[in-house]
Design a protein around this nucleic acid. Structure first.
Length: 416
DNA sequence: CCAAATTACTTCGCACGG
DNA sequence: CTGCCCGTGCGAAGTAAT
């Protein structure tokens, strides 16, 4: 097995930089302290990506723009452009596809490429990786890191070793012990904040410590997750590269931070309708129906809670789903000011395999026709071409939540 | 008035039925 | 009838990733 992991270096920022240059902007924002963040006036002030010079100011992804500006007053900030990112992602994918048809688009800026059957035609993976990296840089105007390994995990970890514009390998045990084991354990994929804290308590600080640790002890501390990260630390991973077409979507959700805290149920319901409209539209586009509906609420205090219901039938109808969304919100809302709302759908069946239940009184043919027509109008004339009357004469957007929806899945199948 | 959005998977507590 | 144990299924919360 030969797997490549291709990762665009600070993707949002690089892509914005390349786009700005193409439009005649006089400065390459990659060369100065800069960042991508949404509008803080709408309470979206969070760093989504930063340049390498900005990193020198200890500016981190996920940090508030407010904090970042305190440490780096001259920070240049640009808004994200999700359509652009999707186009860049597609362009990168098109180049990769010239080498192998077996590609898993893992996120907008990351792909796994199964190169096992390609070495005959294109030479050793390490050399092909250099060629691919250079082609993307020269033809598309942004740099990538490529990791080469015998499986997905090691390819991904190899790609992280040093940046930007680099190819790294983690091909055998020797390389694993030399390059990976000395790193802090938190650098390992799937070892997050919570796991680091627990591992510290038993004196595990590096990936090597974890690799040599007692599996039974890890199991008792971290359950199945302990087994997983122990295997990762030892370079063990049997997950296949799965083309995105073969991955079945498990759930869909849309959520939004509200422009101002919402205090009344009626006001919340406006946003919930907007969110439901959008997520149900996505569900129909996938050709699926769902039987689990959930809402999530984040209070102004940042306390978060969720509530869900299992429907005794499958549906893709906006109005039907909205009825349950309202019920769920009413049942779980504690009455305090609301900062963020979300709507989630899961437990899908394919709509074409769908069998009408004898007890299914919910699905009315008129509703089905209505949804279909609304979807078609939006597909042809844009997402704002048609919307519900409740949104007329408000400054509320009829379809809220979410970024651009590419034809890839975020996470999916990283585990056996 | 600092703290996004989306998805996947695990764990834990609880209710239910026998 | 009550207490208890156990498996199961569900929902909420937690963890992780980009």
């Amino acid at each position: 097995m030969r797997i490549l992991h291709v990762d665009s270096n600070s993707a949002y920022l690089s892509w914005t930089a390349a786009d700005l240059l193409e439009k005649g902007y006089p400065l390459d924002i990659r060369t100065v302290p800069s960042a991508i963040a949404e509008d803080p006036d709408n309470r979206h002030g969070i760093i989504l990506a930063k340049s390498i010079p900005a990193k020198a100011y200890k500016i981190g992804t996920g940090e508030s723009l407010f904090e970042a500006r305190q440490r780096c007053p001259g920070l240049l900030v640009f808004p994200p452009d999700y359509d652009l990112y999707l186009a860049c992602s597609d362009a990168m994918y098109d180049i990769l596809y010239q080498y192998s048809p077996l590609i898993q688009r893992y996120s907008v800026d990351e792909c796994f490429v199964d190169f096992s059957a390609c070495e005959e035609r294109f030479g050793p993976a390490e050399e092909a990786a250099v060629e691919i990296k250079n082609r993307i840089r020269d033809e598309l105007g942004f740099t990538v890191n490529i990791g080469v390994g015998p499986n997905k995990l090691l390819a991904k970890m190899a790609g992280e070793l040093s940046k930007p514009d680099k190819v790294h390998t983690l091909l055998d045990r020797r390389e694993l012990e030399e390059k990976l084991w000395p790193l802090p354990v938190g650098e390992l994929f799937m070892v997050g904040r919570a796991s680091v804290r627990k591992l510290e308590k038993i004196n595990i600080r590096t990936i090597g410590d974890l690799a040599r640790a007692d599996r039974a002890l890890l199991r008792s501390l971290l359950k199945s997750h302990g087994q997983l990260i122990w295997e990762y630390a030892n370079g063990i991973d049997c997950d296949r590269v799965i083309p995105n077409g073969e991955i079945l979507q498990k759930g869909l959700s849309n959520s939004m931070t509200l422009p101002a805290d919402v205090l009344s149920r009626l006001e919340a319901e406006q946003y919930l309708l907007s969110l439901t409209d959008r997520v149900a539209g996505r569900l129909r586009r996938q050709g699926c129906k769902a039987s689990l509906v959930g809402v999530s609420v984040k209070a102004a205090s940042f306390l978060r809670y969720t509530h869900q219901i299992r429907l005794p039938f499958f549906t893709d109808d906006t109005t039907t789903i909205y009825r349950y969304v309202c019920r769920l919100f009413e049942e779980c809302w504690k009455g305090e000011p609301v900062r963020q709302l979300g709507v989630r759908l899961s437990e899908f069946v394919r709509a074409d395999e769908f069998q009408l239940s004898v007890f299914d009184f919910e699905k009315l043919p008129e509703d089905e026709a209505l949804n279909r027509v609304v979807d078609q109008i939006r597909a042809r004339f844009g997402q704002t071409a048609i919307y519900r009357g409740t949104f007329a004469n408000t400054d509320l957007k009829p379809l809220e939540g979410g970024v651009n929806d590419g034809n890839y899945m975020m996470m999916g199948g990283y585990k056996l």
